[in-house]
Design a protein around this nucleic acid. Sequence first.
DNA 1: TTGAAAGCGCTACCAT
DNA 2: ATGGTAGCGCTTTCAA
Lengths: 340, 340
Amino acid sequence: MKGGPTTMRDIAIKLGVSISTVSRALRDVPDINPETKKAVVELAEQLNYKPNPFASNLVKNRSNLIGVLVPNVEENFFARVITGIQSAVFDTAFNVIIANVNDDQEREKRDVENFLLSRTDALIMAPTHENRDFGHLQEVLNRKVPLVFFDRFIEEVPTSKIVVDDFEGAFNAVEYLISTGCKRIAHLAGHDTLSLARDRKEGYRAALKKHGLYSGDQLILTSGYTYEEGVMAARKLIASTPVPDAVFGVSDRVAIGAMNEFQRLGYKVPDEVSFIGFTNEPVAEMVSPPLTTVEQRAHDIGREAGKMALKLINQSRAKREHAIETIILKTRLIVRGSTR
Amino acid sequence: MKGGPTTMRDIAIKLGVSISTVSRALRDVPDINPETKKAVVELAEQLNYKPNPFASNLVKNRSNLIGVLVPNVEENFFARVITGIQSAVFDTAFNVIIANVNDDQEREKRDVENFLLSRTDALIMAPTHENRDFGHLQEVLNRKVPLVFFDRFIEEVPTSKIVVDDFEGAFNAVEYLISTGCKRIAHLAGHDTLSLARDRKEGYRAALKKHGLYSGDQLILTSGYTYEEGVMAARKLIASTPVPDAVFGVSDRVAIGAMNEFQRLGYKVPDEVSFIGFTNEPVAEMVSPPLTTVEQRAHDIGREAGKMALKLINQSRAKREHAIETIILKTRLIVRGSTR
DNA sequence: TTGAAAGCGCTACCAT
DNA sequence: ATGGTAGCGCTTTCAA
């Protein structure tokens, strides 16, 4: 009995059994006398015994930690994904540890290495934009640490992923614009480094083509995702002739930036110009008019990613190889006041 | 040489020295021959040696983890605080582990206990609304684990904290409304369980009193913090006579909800009614008109909290007692279009 | 300045 | 069903 918290040793001594027996009683192992088990568990309870995670981690070389890397927690989408992951993992033995990468590949590398050092049992991540160097992710695969991508993924790194159907989401959005009578639909696009940006752009093109409205990419502006970039893009669109009668943004923020700037310069929304965004952040319903957008199901993405990580962890333990699985969630168009 | 990663043992054998020597060489201990140290460090580098955190944690009974508990990551304010904490901790030996408590005291208790089990070296948290039971926090104090509150705090739990001057922020906001000619200023208040809600309310009252405009609390509505609650509150205000000519909200969201509802029902903002919020979330500049608000310096709060946690950890190590320190950051009024 | 040895708390293997 | 023992990788006495 040394000062610190109760250990198995304490329990073993008080009960006159061996430490091994205590260890077995406290876990779900078969070979244990129910009465012994009961006695141990009761005494453990009474002495407020808590296992020391380091000791068992050291032996088992696992951490019971799931590492999550997001580009930026301050983006509501990623915050919601985190909540989703946590809800999937909440009543398991695992804890979630979050790294905020700030869309910086160097930081991503560093954080992935840190997670590997900490023996995280799985990694869930949305890789950064500029991923040309996959060494750190390859290392994750080499070590057989389960890796789950969400939202974004890297073709060259074969692993499981959870994404939404970006193509279809964009397609439906643009088709909806067409159904309300819009003819000259601009797209504020993200950079082609991200598959989601490419897919949304493709969905946009496909919808136009289907309805005979596609005549090249003149109405595509590679703006980026932010509010300010939306404002800038709007100015360019307004300078063009004729001015578009609808704008489909790769993100809610870029769409809102554009919408506000159009309105500031005197255009009526949605009468003269319609706007649709992508993601359905809370801000979408607070702006005027409320933004029609594509629900990206952040929470579901997170929950599925968490579930998949847990599943892969169990598979690893059973020494099976990971099957690479892709879950594609369907989006849903949320119609609000920014469209006719 | 067993398959796994390089250990100190591997280095010791290759160099023909003892493990103790390797251990000393790899840390900053004085009693070590510079040449031995050099040789060890070089070989370690070459073999890509990485210390096993569990082993050293087991011995030292520390985790190099700083636990952060936030009510809800999906609130932009808390996401920004997290970024701030991470920026303070980034190039230290520590990692930040985040728990998302969902404003649920039971979950907070559970997560605090988890952190204690994981031997987190410090805790940074904004306690939940309904904190009547402090057992888990008392336990943190008992164990001499540094505890830092931010944004919210609990009088009964004496510990260091980082807050903004809520009273002054509210006072300045309301005084600004008065300076623009508003006379009948309503306050959408939070519940008195949170000191920040009480302080903002007091700041509101004090500004009115100073200018002879206070005549009781009839214009105070205890609405809550959300957009929807703002919408509801607006309806009540509009039903009252006379209708207020300004609204000061305890949060940006509640202010925006109210502002949108006033506008929907035909009121001109800011000509007929002015609005001020609190926090300066990004949404504040996206709504129409852009919301005047009190900058709450989330990032600074996080950075200060992180720095304070690190400082307290070092003090603990030196076996000194913690000095309880309170850092009060000054707010700043950001004037936009929702006020005259 | 270095080495040997004990031990952090737990798991897992081999006996019995 | 239980106990003994070795060992996970590291830090930290104590001796030399």
